[in-house]
Design a protein around this nucleic acid. Structure first.
Lengths: 339, 339
DNA sequence: GTCTGGCACTCCGGGACAGGGACTGCCAGC
DNA sequence: GCTGGCAGTCCCTGTCCCGGAGTGCCAGAC
């Protein structure tokens, strides 16, 4: 074991100990609990170097050391061995998720499952409409001058819009439009359907023109263009377990959790099929400077439909949480794209 | 002003002062801030009586007085003058809610609005399926042996179920069932539709019997019988403002907020067209002993569709919160039943 | 009978202070 | 390059003390 290697082991030990005890860890405690093969004094020298390099810091003179954001980052990047879930755990995940009856239920169960597995706050994004396939489009009249549009996607997500018309329409016209729409864009992805919809609206009989135009514009504007992203949050009670980890109190964290935009940036922007970890300042949000986020995308094969993740104190058990997020994302992806 | 009247005024003053300052209120502070027309010593006597009767208590000898649950109860029942919302406030509520594009949006806005108006945690229940009118029923095949059932209600709520069949069916059969279903139960309330659905399932041509039976049973079981109650929660960050009011930390409160059952009992069980206040132990839930809930039902006319409310520390501004909950419930009821 | 001013008493909360403990940095020796 | 030892630093805890706020009670006034 070289010099540098040992120093990394020391950092790893500091992170692990601090995560499990929440006390600044000193040189003596370190040699007691890990068999590093050298004396406390040597560790102290290593710690001094690690501190110089910015990986650890001490809250005050004569206290133990605590990892910095940079320290956690190095730990996650180079020192983490993600242990795959056991067969029993995989089975539990699967059976828990499979009881779901519809999409709301799937995502509700997912968020509870994640929160329970990681004992952190869990967040799940609804499948993005634009990237989902269209399973069925329904149009039916509410009155002679209002129709309702319902879009049902492969992933089970449903969107509805009431569309006011500036003309009167008949049942038959609406039914006609309905079958034309389904024929034109059924099975396509919404993002690919735009041109077909526009084309359809131009090529209908004259008397249906206004109806088709209204419906088409709503379909395009509301469903395709808006980067709509509902999210489900669960397990907020877990935040209270680590009250001392959030010195500024929970307020900014809870506020961030209620702001879709903030959360979406965190769990939505992930490279497909990898797990992403953001630590402290990396979250790009003042309120989350004391937090860490572990997130992953879910979807079918290459097509990413949404994201999910957990949020907790920087002092979290990264290896387990990464494993849990990855496993759950995989199952959810399979479930949501499977129907 | 009789003896008893003055004692009630003292109680009112204690509640109001304690709500606004969060300090146990003493006799001197009371005469300073309210013109009660008597001296501090007299107030002290009144306070002793109020304490004997259980309306107030002192955290320790030589501290001021704090209202008990019973004291808050009396305050709410007899001393509260609910100030109606100003025209400006009403206008703000209305315009904020009217921008909504669908039911999810309505309820999302409602919960944000309530949280902002009251500066407490807000909770809104989705309209109960069983009591809603059926606007449209959609059945269409996913494959030859699976169909999807979608029910859209007056209140804008949508339920979907994938139904596996034990037989193969054709497009035409499904389309036929669809129109029959709509003819039979369109416009009815789901709770009234049961017999019609059962009847329909019996009276279809032989070859459609299995399909109709499957769909009917799902329709009845999942949609009518289950007291399904999704809820939306918002403004949890407001809890942190009153950290000292929740001595056991927020954990039990946050846990309760994630348990649908608990919340539904609180906001679901209200007499129509009244505002209900539950204080401390009245919530019938250990975790909420330090909390108070102000709730009301919303709906159209006599038909209650759901409930909503706010949750906060017992030390809350009851008059304002009652007014806000009542006003918002009224607008939401109008909006949801109006379409 | 009711209200009032005065007085003794109780209790909390904060500041001051000292002792113990935990670590560190540094140094000299192996 | 590693190790043991030592002095120094800082926090944390417990104790003590004191001021402040509020009460309960009592005797006297109306």
């Amino acid at each position: 074991m070289t010099h540098d290697e040992r120093r990394l082991q020391v950092l790893r030990a500091i992170v692990e100990d601090f995560v499990s005890t929440n006390d600044p860890v000193g040189s003596k405690a370190l040699v007691d609990r890990h068999s590093l093969g050298v004396s406390a004094a040597t560790i102290r020298n290593d710690m001094a170097v690690l501190e110089d390099e910015g990986y650890i810091t001490q809250p005050h003179t004569s206290a133990g050391r605590v990892p910095t954001d940079k320290g956690y980052r190095l730990f996650v990047d180079r020192l983490t061995q993600i242990k795959p879930m056991t067969a029993a755990e995989r089975k539990a995940i699967q059976s828990f998720l499979e009881g779901a009856v519809d999409l709301d239920d799937v995502l509700g169960r997912t968020v509870r499952l994640l929160a329970q597995l990681t004992r952190q706050v869990a967040v799940v994004q609804y499948p993005t409409i634009a990237r989902s396939g269209i399973r069925h489009v329904e149009v039916f009249p509410l009155s002679t001058s209002r129709v309702m549009l319902v879009v049902i996607t492969d992933s089970g997500r449903i969107e509805q819009r009431v569309i006011p018309l500036n003309v009167e329409v008949t049942e038959e016209q609406v039914a006609d439009l309905r079958s034309k729409l389904n024929a034109a864009i059924g099975g396509l992805r919404l993002s690919d359907a735009s041109s077909r919809v526009a084309e359809l609206a131009r090529n209908v009989p004259n008397e249906m023109r206004p109806l088709a135009a209204c419906v088409a514009s709503v379909l395009l504007e509301t469903l395709v263009e808006q980067p709509d992203g509902r999210i489900v949050v669960g397990g907020t009670a877990n935040l209270t377990r680590d009250l001392h980890d959030f010195p500024m109190s929970l307020r900014p964290i809870l506020e961030a959790l209620e702001e879709q935009v903030v959360i979406l940036r965190l769990i939505g922007e992930v490279d497909p099929s990898t797990v992403m970890v953001r630590i402290g300042e990396e979250n790009q949000h003042a309120g989350l400077a004391a937090a860490a986020v572990v997130s992953a995308g879910y979807g079918s094969g290459t097509q990413q439909l949404g994201g999910l993740g957990v949020l907790g104190p920087k002092r979290m058990d990264y290896p387990s949480n990464i494993a849990a997020v990855r496993a759950v994302a995989r199952y959810v992806g399979r479930l949501v794209s499977g129907g």
